[in-house]
């Protein structure tokens, strides 16, 4: 059975393009804010924007695979992961990110610099890699999310912020999958989502135990094992 697409590929491409820009802004904001509840809210917003992007792709493709990917993105990235992080935060005594390994004056311009770097790095590929949707911002945004997520992970001290960075990285890959390859096979997409969800759950468990044993979730205190 074939259903006529509700929107054209190019409309979906424009939605993807706008979503990509939104995601860059959200991820960048994530590297600036220091309140943990705000960074979780920003991560939830990323998830929502991603589901809008994959929803647009689904409307244009009208395949059950794309609708499945949309449902999974919405459930996992916009709802379950933020909820889980929220529950961990609820049990934490300190909800503010302590001063990181880099001062704010240094960290913000460094993070900002990652965005043009991503555009430059992807340039040689954009000519034929944009895929059917012709969303020029999607791949640079994917790389930017990957780098900004990694940046969050290495500069932050709170274990929870590192999980936020990790999920940001994975969001970047999801965007690349939707834009460049028009999505992975559904079984793979589903498996990846389950893994990410289980991963965040286990990380939450370990954070909880670390908090119980050491009374803190600052990962820079975890330095007893060497050699």
């Amino acid at each position: 059975m074939t259903v006529d697409p509700l929107i054209s590929l190019s409309t979906a491409g424009s939605v993807l393009d706008a979503a990509a820009l939104c995601l860059i802004a959200l991820a960048f904001a994530g590297t600036v804010v220091r309140t943990l509840s705000t960074s979780i809210a920003l991560l939830a917003a990323q998830g929502l924007v991603l589901s809008i992007a994959s929803g647009a792709a689904a409307l244009a493709e009208m395949e059950w695979r794309s609708w499945g990917a949309f449902a999974v993105a919405l459930a996992v990235k916009a709802i379950f992961i933020p909820l889980m992080l929220w529950r961990i935060l609820d049990r934490m005594p300190v909800r503010q990110e302590p001063p990181g390994f880099l001062s704010v004056k240094l960290a913000v311009p460094l993070a900002a610099a990652l965005i043009p770097i991503s555009y430059r790095a992807i340039e040689p590929f954009t000519a034929d890699t944009i895929g059917a949707f012709n969303a020029t911002n999607a791949l640079p945004a994917a790389l930017a999310l990957l780098l900004l997520g990694l940046f969050t992970m290495v500069t932050r001290k709170k274990a929870l912020s590192q999980v936020v960075g990790l999920v940001t990285m994975e969001n970047g890959l999801y965007l690349a999958a939707v834009a460049a390859t028009r999505g992975l096979p559904f079984a793979v997409e589903f498996g990846v989502a389950v893994d990410v969800l289980a991963g965040v759950a286990v990380m939450g468990l370990v954070i909880h135990e670390i908090m119980r044993v050491t009374g803190s979730t600052d990962v820079d205190r975890l330095r007893t094992l060497t050699g």
Partner: peptide, 8 residues
């Protein structure tokens, strides 16, 4: 726990 966290 430190080992598990680094590993993850």
């Amino acid at each position: 726990l430190e080992a598990a966290w680094k590993y993850l």
